[in-house]
Computed example of a mutant assay.
Amino acid sequence: MKQNFKLQSFLADNAVVLIFVIITLGAIPISGLPLTSIVQEILTRIGRNCFLVFSLLLPIMAGMGINFGMVLGAMAGQIGLIFVVDWNIVGVTGLLFASLIAIPIAAILGWIAGQILNRARGREMVTGYVLGFFMDGFYQFIVLYLMGQPSIWTAKVLDRWTALIPIHSPTIILSRGYGIRNTLNLDAVRQSLDKFIPLKIGAISVPVANYIVIGLLCLFIIWFRKTKLGHDMRAVGQNQAVAHAAGIPVDRTRILAIVISTILASLGQIIFLQNMGNIATYNAHQQTGFFAAAAILVGGASVSKASIPNVFIGTMLLHLMYIVVPRAGTNLFGDAQIGEYFRDAFSYAIIALALVIHAWRKRANAEAARSSLRGGTEAVKE
Rank of each mutant, 00 (worst) to 15 (best):
N4K: 14
A12S: 14
A12K: 14
A15H: 05
V16D: 03
I28A: 06
S37Q: 15
Q40L: 08
I42M: 13
N49H: 08
N49D: 12
F54Y: 13
F54D: 03
L58A: 06
I60M: 10
M61S: 11
M64R: 05
M64E: 07
M70W: 02
G73Y: 01
M75N: 02
V85C: 07
G94C: 12
L95K: 01
S99A: 15
I101S: 00
I105P: 00
G110V: 07
L117T: 05
L117C: 07
A120W: 00
R121V: 10
V130S: 08
L131S: 06
F133P: 04
D136I: 04
V143L: 11
L144T: 07
Y145Q: 08
M147F: 03
I152T: 11
V157W: 03
W161I: 12
S169K: 11
I172H: 00
L174K: 10
S175M: 09
G177W: 02
T183C: 03
L184R: 01
D194L: 05
F196K: 04
P198E: 07
S205W: 02
V208G: 06
N210E: 11
N210P: 12
I212V: 15
L216H: 06
F220G: 14
K226F: 09
K226D: 08
K226L: 12
G230K: 05
A235T: 10
V236K: 04
Q240H: 04
V242T: 12
A243D: 02
A243E: 05
G247H: 07
R252S: 13
R254N: 09
I255G: 02
L264V: 12
L264C: 09
A265E: 03
Q274C: 10
N278S: 11
A284E: 05
H285T: 12
Q287Y: 11
A294K: 05
G299I: 08
G300N: 02
S304F: 05
S304K: 06
A306H: 01
I313N: 01
T315V: 15
M316T: 15
L318R: 07
M321W: 04
P326S: 09
T330K: 13
G334C: 13
F342C: 09
S347T: 14
Y348V: 13
Y348R: 02
L353E: 04
A354S: 15
I357Y: 03
H358V: 10
H358Q: 14
R361Y: 05
K362E: 14
R363L: 13
A364D: 13
A364K: 15
N365K: 14
A366L: 15
E367G: 02
R370Q: 14
R374Q: 13
G375S: 11
E382I: 13
